[in-house]
């Protein structure tokens, strides 16, 4: 049961503005007790029921860190989260491979939107310089929390991911762009190094590539495939692109069964908000998003 922690709040955040509501301390995983003699004596003097509730600040920080590592970062695309066991695992590398129009960039934006809407700072290392800020904002990405890095070579992109993950960002996405990937293929050791950095920092790392390249370094490999776009209207009537279906399959998972798949449905802005009254003067999706 979560317990109110008004006192802890006042002690820890005494320099900050007090929140309107009491902070609910989440259920924390057990950690090894610290070695401080005074804390040990205090615990011994308490009843067993109270004893388990007493925690030193060091133990609290360790427990919070452990809990954070065990958490998953949901993409809020339900079929994909179910496939991943709840979301992107923190401290692990997930690879998403798919060719043209396979929904990779839509998944990337959904993951960024989920993380930034929860207040996390996120990074997009955009090798092909493909991001449309208007569309990202329409998709729910909080642009203020997004660091956009646009390297020109794969080597620089991997280096940037390594540097930025070491800074403490909780979601780092590397989008390798189009086939063929710019710059030379990076050595597998670089991916292993990235996996270690992600593990050390508790960073959820998503590598979006046109073909699998992370090798043994990734925890999960997803394969995305376009099914068909959906159109509204037929014959000579005005036609509008309504959405796309994408099949995602798990081709590698270190803990769950492989071979499972799910279908993701993406819609265009017009389909999500209703068709424009004057289709002939419709603005492109990005423009419409900005206009709103």
């Amino acid at each position: 049961m979560p317990a109110p922690a008004r006192y802890l709040d006042t002690q820890v955040n005494f320099l900050r503005r007090l929140p309107q509501r009491p902070i609910l301390v989440p259920d924390l995983p057990p950690v090894e007790p610290g070695e401080r003699e005074d804390v040990r004596r205090l615990r011994e003097s308490l009843e067993a029921t109270v004893r388990s509730k007493v925690m030193s600040a060091t133990e609290l920080i360790r427990a919070l860190g452990k809990q954070r590592r065990d958490e998953l970062l949901p993409t809020t695309l339900e079929p994909l989260d179910a496939l991943l066991g709840g979301g992107l695992p923190r401290g692990k590398v997930v690879e998403l491979a798919g060719r043209r129009s396979a929904g990779r960039f839509s998944i990337v934006l959904a993951a960024l939107a989920a993380a930034t809407s929860a207040g996390e700072a996120a990074v997009l290392v955009d090798l092909g310089d493909h991001l449309d800020p208007q569309l990202a904002e329409a998709n729910g990405v909080d642009l203020r929390r997004l660091l956009w890095i646009r390297p020109e070579k794969m080597k620089d992109a991997v280096h940037a991911v390594e540097m930025i993950a070491a800074t403490g960002f909780q979601l780092v996405i590397l989008d390798a762009g189009l086939h063929p990937i710019r710059g030379r293929r990076v050595a597998e050791a670089a991916w292993v190094r990235l996996a270690r950095t992600a593990e050390a920092q508790g960073t959820a790392m998503l590598i979006s590539t046109p073909y699998p390249m992370t090798g043994t370094a990734s925890e999960i490999v997803l394969s995305a495939q376009r099914v068909r776009p959906k159109w509204l209207g037929s014959g000579k009537s005005p036609r509008i692109l309504a959405g796309m279906s994408v099949d995602v399959a798990v081709t590698k998972h270190r803990h769950l069964k492989e071979g499972r798949g799910a279908r993701l449905e993406f819609v265009t802005l017009e389909a999500a908000t209703g068709p424009s009254p004057s289709a002939g003067l419709r603005m492109t999706p990005g423009v419409e998003a900005a206009a709103r």
Binding site: A110, A118, F266
Partner: peptide, 15 residues
Amino acid sequence: AHAPRKSRGLVAARI
């Protein structure tokens, strides 16, 4: 920490 907002699931355009 609060739960993330549900994604709109929009098709992205790769510029």
